[in-house]
Design a protein around this nucleic acid. Structure first.
Lengths: 146, 146
DNA sequence: CTTGACCTTCCCATGGGGGCAAGCTTCATC
DNA sequence: GATGAAGCTTGCCCCCATGGGAAGGTCAAG
């Protein structure tokens, strides 16, 4: 079985060598075996593991979630319900972020639509950014201590 | 003309004192004047500036973009076209991220829909993560020392 | 033997913060 | 005037996930 150096393992798995070392350091993957001279060596199994991580990162899972997914992946007595729950949790997070960004985008588009975008300095975008006061107002006394 | 300490300026602007120091350190805002004893002091103008930053952060602008927006805000000879361009650039970035996350979400939803979510271990989600090999394959000759 | 590609560890940077600690300053209250 | 409690100062470490680079060891080919 071909034993690969980190660079080849990285290329085979589609991640950077840097990240492999990082994943090892944070305990996401077990410590790689070392050659006599100290080089990390990787087997097909470990490349497969790295590929799994790459796929999960591509779907936006966090490192913590990937750790859980790896545990499930390697546990033949897992229940698919546990995996599905993790996926649904992540879908919820994605939805939340998407909602936030859509709201930002909508506001920006509204402002941009009202901006002439010409040589004149008047600009509703800057007005909006400088305008609306937040909830907290400046309190009249100096420093509100006790 | 109330001159505020950092905590009160932070409350008035809706940002944390920590971030005010940070913005000063990275040069986003000018260095605050100091009282005799070394406390940072803030005028209404500076609170207004901080409020501007808070608004811009709320719309997802990066620190770099906010720096540019601040320059435009304080330049009475700006053209609204420049501001609009910055806003449109940011809208484009948001769209890109939204697209990526929608794609992740769609994939996850497809996988989750095919997952029984019961006590059994079989799970198409894990299959997908472990399955598809990336484009790059193990190269035969390159540096395969073993 | 030399070259150069690879590997090792270590430190630094990113963005946008949070938190804690030691030591001052300020202020209200006794 | 003393005291205690907030508030301020700086500085350092942490998060996530990653990239960059320096200084030095290793290995295979020419």
């Amino acid at each position: 079985m071909a034993s690969l150096n980190i660079g080849d393992a990285a290329a085979a798995a589609g991640v950077s060598a840097k990240m492999i070392r990082h994943y090892e350091e944070i305990g996401l993957i077990p410590k790689a075996k070392r050659s006599y001279s100290g080089y990390r060596t990787y087997s097909e199994n470990e490349v497969h593991l790295l590929r799994f991580i790459r796929q999960a990162r591509g779907l936006g899972f966090s490192i913590r979630q990937i750790g859980e997914l790896l545990g499930l992946w390697q546990n033949s007595r897992r229940s698919s319900a546990t995996v599905k729950k993790l996926a649904l949790e992540h879908i919820g997070e994605l939805e939340e972020k998407i909602r936030e960004m859509l709201a930002m985008k909508a506001t920006l588009e509204r402002l941009a639509a009202h901006c002439h975008g010409d040589h004149r300095p008047e600009c509703p975008i800057l007005d909006e950014l400088s305008g609306p006061a937040p909830a907290g107002q400046v309190r009249s006394g100096k420093s509100g201590r006790s």
